[in-house]
Design a protein around this nucleic acid. Structure first.
Length: 462
RNA sequence: UCCUUAGUAGCUCAGUUGGUUAGAGCGACGGACUGUUAAUCCGUAGGUCGUAGGUUCGAGCCCUACCUGGGGAGCCA
């Protein structure tokens, strides 16, 4: 007999048929003559109830069916006599693939704290919450490719190991094969990388954007979707040292086109989740965040507010609020300011544009006012900045001036400047933090709980 | 990195002004039970009180340092 997944079984049940299911025991309820097993195979958040007549099975075998054990069960699919489920399987045969010692198996029928489950991240997939989160995470990854493929974007693989130290997006992890206990030194005491694997200093990438731009300036529209690494000592529920980022880059897009794409993209993903992850979202809505589905629908149905940094500063100044950090043109907006705009003033996602050039990266296109750049930050309720992007500076001279002004290593950016030297074109792009998107879509509150094995300062378990 | 808060049984927690042998619920185990839904009822076992020092006749409780977690901030996606 061929094994059926529980999801398939429940969506198109053939009552009276004999079926084979395989999965892990979530709970077992025992009576004298009858045993009920809730079996889950991961295909859906729903369990299938296995009904066991104790007289028909060996007692020793039934004893080994404990929480966490893996079973293969054959039996007849029938309408359930009980209240909690529509269908159930009357077991004819049970094979135990893997026992699970109940004295040491850490998962109980009762709820656990997220902190405890994080310590047993290798087993937390077996809980309803993490099953739901990681099924949704998969659905979002799939939807990202579906969306871009449908729009004619090409998935570009930018390097994980980079020799470029110019992104300026944060502290980097070094990559080397040299003996850390005996590093060769130059006369001035600095490390001599000439005999290292790559013959130069290399790091893990903090962003694929610069390479992505090169792809866009030939292929038209590209996107990257891969891991990125930041060696920042950030200890917050919104930061990871290893996280996944989506970075589309589009030729001939100006900042408005860029904002249109960002808004359409995020809404597509939210709609995809609502359309395809209904059961998992329902569960999270009940157990994690009662306002989750309502909030997803609200974001889907309302236009994002678009205002300039300068307008935002006026709103904040006029708000009459007491700020911990002072508001003033030229200062970067702090979390409290962004939160006020999104959660109190507009009560919806906000896109802020045209920031002072001093607080933004070198590659952003300068406005004619000489003071601001064509940057955009998409701010979400509860998450803060979920997307950061800009129209890129496509004029060679202006870009070079900016590199010099900010004292960046000009010689290392020759390849990047070449894109402006030969057939430059207006272009734009943005970066979306994948885990921050998953936070928003699942209603989870800590980013460590939306990636299977989180990497954070002082933690690289598993 | 800074501020703040916490660490006691497998889990979630209580533990009074420093004072006998550190408690509960859940889970696990044993038993009972005519179809259960985090089943129910009866019973049993389970502890180096985060680590290392210190104060004291006496420390789970007070002091110091360190480790780890939570919340907030900064950096950002």
């Amino acid at each position: 007999m061929k094994r059926k997944k529980v999801k398939k079984l429940l969506s198109s049940p053939r009552l009276g048929s004999n079926v084979l299911v395989k999965g892990w025991v979530r709970t077992k309820r025992e009576n004298k003559n009858i045993i009920f097993i809730a079996l889950n195979d991961g295909s859906t958040i729903k369990n299938i109830q296995i009904v066991v007549d104790t007289a028909s099975f060996k007692e020793d075998m039934l004893k080994d069916i404990t929480t966490g054990a893996c079973l293969a069960v054959t039996g007849k699919l029938v309408e359930s006599q009980g209240q909690g489920q529509s269908f159930e399987i009357n077991a004819k045969s049970i094979e135990i693939y893997g026992k699970s010692d109940p004295e040491t198996y850490p998962l109980q029928k009762k709820g656990h704290s997220m902190e405890f489950l994080r310590e047993i991240a290798h087993l937390r997939f077996r809980t309803n919450t993490f099953g739901a989160v990681f099924r949704i995470r998969h659905a979002m990854a799939f939807a990202i490719h579906k969306y871009f493929n449908g729009k004619g974007f090409f998935y570009l693989h930018t390097p994980i190991i980079t020799g470029s130290d110019a992104e300026g997006a944060g502290e980097m992890f070094h990559v080397t094969t040299m003996d850390l206990k005996n590093m060769p030194r130059n006369e001035d005491g600095s490390v001599d990388f000439r005999n290292d694997f790559f013959g130069k200093e290399t790091n893990l990438t903090v962003s694929g954007q610069l390479e992505g731009e090169l792809g866009a300036l030939a292929l038209g529209d590209i996107y990257t979707f891969g891991p990125t690494f930041r060696a920042e000592n950030s200890n917050t529920p919104r930061h990871l040292a290893e996280f996944w980022m989506i970075e589309p880059e589009m030729s001939f897009y100006d900042l408005n086109d860029n904002m249109d794409l960002a808004e359409e993209f995020v809404k597509y993903l939210i709609k995809y989740a609502l359309d395809n992850c209904h059961e998992d979202l329902e569960f999270l809505n009940n157990m994690i965040d009662k306002a989750l589905i309502e909030r997803l629908k609200f974001v889907l149905e309302n236009e994002f507010v678009r205002i300039t940094y300068t307008e935002a500063v006026s709103i904040l100044s006029a708000s009459g609020k007491k700020w911990e950090y002072q508001v003033g043109w030229g200062r970067d907006l702090q979390a409290e300011h962004e939160r006020y705009l999104v959660e109190e003033h507009f009560k919806r996602p906000v896109i802020l544009t045209d920031y002072p050039k001093e607080i933004k990266a070198f590659y952003m296109k300068q406005n004619d006012d000489g003071k601001t750049v064509r940057a955009m930050d998409v701010l979400f309720p509860g998450i803060g900045e979920i997307i950061g992007g800009s129209q890129r500076e496509e004029q060679y001279d202006r870009l070079l001036d900016r590199i010099k002004e900010m004292k960046l290593p000009e010689k290392d950016l020759g390849w990047y400047l070449d894109a402006r030297k030969f057939g430059t074109a207006p272009h734009s792009g943005f970066g979306l933090g994948f885990e921050r998107l998953i936070l928003f879509v699942t209603g989870m509150s800590n980013i460590r709980d939306v990636i299977p094995f989180p990497r954070t300062p002082k933690n690289a378990e598993f």
